[in-house]
Simulated assay, not measured.
Amino acid sequence: MDVSHEINLLVEEIQRLGSKNASGQTSVKFGVLFNDDRCANIFEALVGTLKAAKKRKVIAFQSELLLQGVHDDVDIVLLQE
C-alpha cells in the first residue's frame, strides 16, 4: 500500500466534504468523513490513514486516536491544501 497515495486521496476527500473554518483552513468532522460512502469504499483503514497524515503534518486533530461515535465531532483540519 502506498501511504503517500492514500494521504493524497484523503486530502481530496477532506476538500470535497469539508468547509473553510475561521482561519481559512479546510476542516471536516471525523463523523462526516467516517460515515461517507465514498470514503468507506476508498479507505480500508481510514483511522490508519488519518494517523499517517497527522504524523506527516498534512492534517491536525485534537485526539490521539479517533473512534467512530465517540469522536464524531472532532475537527480534522487540513494543514496543506
Rank of each mutant, 00 (worst) to 15 (best):
G24W: 06
D2A: 09
K20H: 05
I7C: 09
V3N: 10
L10Q: 02
G18H: 02
S19V: 11
V32W: 00
K20V: 10
D2R: 11
L9R: 10
N8W: 03
V32F: 00
E12S: 14
L17M: 08
V11N: 06
G31L: 08
L33P: 02
S19C: 07
L9E: 13
N8L: 12
S4V: 11
S23H: 13
R16P: 01
E12G: 11
H5P: 00
F34M: 04
I7W: 07
S4C: 06
V11K: 12
G18S: 03
Q25N: 13
S27R: 03
V3Y: 10
V32I: 11
Q25E: 13
N8F: 06
I14K: 02
G24Q: 08
V28F: 01
N8D: 13
A22R: 14
V32A: 06
V32M: 02
N8Q: 11
G31Q: 09
F34H: 11
L33D: 02
E6Y: 10
L10V: 04
F34N: 12
K20W: 02
Q15F: 04
L10C: 04
V3M: 14
S27V: 02
E12K: 12
I14P: 02
T26F: 09
G24I: 08
N21E: 08
K29S: 04
K20D: 06
N21H: 06
A22K: 14
V3D: 11
S4A: 14
S19Y: 10
V3T: 15
E12A: 13
G24S: 07
M1R: 14
Q25T: 07
I7E: 08
V3P: 04
T26R: 04
S19Q: 13
E6R: 12
L17A: 07
F30Y: 14
V11S: 06
K20E: 13
S4P: 03
F34D: 08
Q25G: 05
L17Y: 06
A22D: 15
T26P: 03
S27Q: 12
S27I: 00
N35G: 11
D36N: 15
S23P: 01
E13V: 09
K20N: 08
D2I: 09
R16Y: 01
N21M: 08
K20R: 12
E6N: 12
K20F: 08
N21R: 07
F30G: 01
L33R: 01
N8T: 10
N21A: 08
I14T: 05
K29G: 00
S23I: 08
N21K: 07
